[in-house]
Design a protein around this nucleic acid. Structure first.
Lengths: 251, 251
DNA sequence: AGAGCTTTGTGTCAATTTTACACTATGCCA
DNA sequence: TGGCATAGTGTAAAATTGACACAAAGCTCT
């Protein structure tokens, strides 16, 4: 009678999905990877949405999120963290959303609870392209997003907030940067996540005191100003740090 | 074919449940309200579980959590916050859990994702009693809990951690105390949530600086030692504080 | 009534952390 | 070579933290 009476492990669960807020950083500002659903038949309504999909009955939630991420970007072993569950019965109320669901879901009217995740990726690792998921995918600066499909805007807000809290407690921001980066880039990253200016000297002092950066004997090339030293993230020290635990970056 | 083709809004969703970690404080230590499932037929396995239930298709997740809380305790308008979603396909692997589900669920083999909440209640407001939920319910000190049904122990850990983080950022601990309380009680509450000793004088200094307590001209009665002054939580100041936002209690 | 027990309530000092703030150095470009 | 843009650096005042000890109040017991 219900899907659970079917063979377990082989099918989509019509009631539970995952959505991923995939953050990137273009060295200027925080961005999110959104999919473009193309022209919405009924004309109105936002075209952009978070990547997401129903879960399979034989995978756990983390696996589902990793799968969605991999299906869209091909990336694996990416930093991923749950934001929470969202499940208003009327979270699908825009006409454009209903119509779209008809084109992609076997049961477009099902009441779906979605579990949101956020992930941090190095933008350079993935150049957006069309996929099974989407007519198109794009990195969009978070500040420029004002509406999304379904309740995805709400989810985005929650993900931003969670990231904000988390980065005060763990130096996860490195997941967003290329291997070699400058302190100024790190500085701008923190500013864009925390959404407030941070004093340059004080920021540098604090970060350095964490002692998780290795300075390279290497400088930026070709910039029209004084070149910056490049740094690497020192995983060893980071592990030490997370072991002993630290409560506060103090930003 | 699936339950979603039925009339929406009237039925249990067989795939999604909520579980509540209901915290209390007995003025000595942090406690959790657990239900006792009674003798487990197969003999082995934990008897205690978190209160929880499947959601209805016409309620959102917060409503479902509030409903479960109200059904068990009769309490309403209680502090409630989502912890996250838990959904291992094999989260129901103990034999005792399978058997119990057979007695309470229409579809005991369904793969269920549960959304966990934690809530803070004043223990005095609720005296445990049997209910539709449980043969019995009881306040159990969190430190004395070492196993629970399903993945409830894991959920409890996550809820404790979330509470720990949250209380560093917002003075939500007041939800656990009676209207009038002493600074020592508040002190012990913070110690038991943070699970570490806090210096008495430093604690008092910090709390007082928040300026959200009103001292009453009233003392404890009948205690075999110097009586303590009683305090009230000052909601007005609290609102001010949460508006302007404060990032850190600094514990 | 007094001794003893238990918990309350209080202050200071040293060390650390935070905040605010401005100028020189380096490399490109025109 | 001068101009432009960003990198990189130090200090002093203020605030916060952490460590620490003893007198006061009320009850109980004898």
């Amino acid at each position: 009678m219900h899907h659970i009476t079917k063979k377990i492990g082989s099918e989509l669960n019509p009631n539970v999905s995952v959505d991923c807020v995939i953050f990137g950083f273009d060295l200027e500002q925080l961005t999110v990877l959104l999919i473009d659903r193309g022209e919405i038949p009924s004309g109105s309504g936002p075209r952009m949405a978070l990547p997401g999909n129903l879960i399979y009955d034989n995978e756990n939630l983390d696996q589902a999120a990793n799968r969605v991420l991999a299906e869209l970007t091909g990336l694996e072993n990416i930093y991923l963290e749950q934001v929470g569950a969202f499940g208003d019965p009327d979270r699908i109320h825009k006409e454009s959303d209903r119509e779209w669901l008809k084109t992609i879901r076997a049961e477009p009217e099902a009441r779906v609870i979605t579990v949101a995740y956020f992930s941090l990726v190095q933008m350079a690792d993935y150049k957006p392209q069309a996929s099974s998921f989407a007519k198109n995918a794009d990195w969009i600066p978070v500040n420029e997003i004002s509406e999304l499909a379904f309740d995805h805007f709400e989810i985005l807000q929650a993900a931003k907030e969670k990231l904000k809290q988390k980065i005060k407690i763990q130096p996860i921001g490195f997941n967003l940067l290329p291997e070699k980066f400058t302190l100024s880039q790190l500085h701008r990253l923190y500013e864009s996540i925390l959404d407030k200016p941070l004093d340059k000297r004080n920021f540098r002092r604090k970060i350095q005191k964490l002692d998780i950066l290795s300075s390279l004997r290497e400088k930026q090339k070709g910039v029209p100003h004084k070149p910056s030293l490049l740094y690497e993230f020192n995983e060893e020290k980071y592990q030490e740090l997370t072991q002993t635990g630290f409560d506060n970056f103090g930003f």
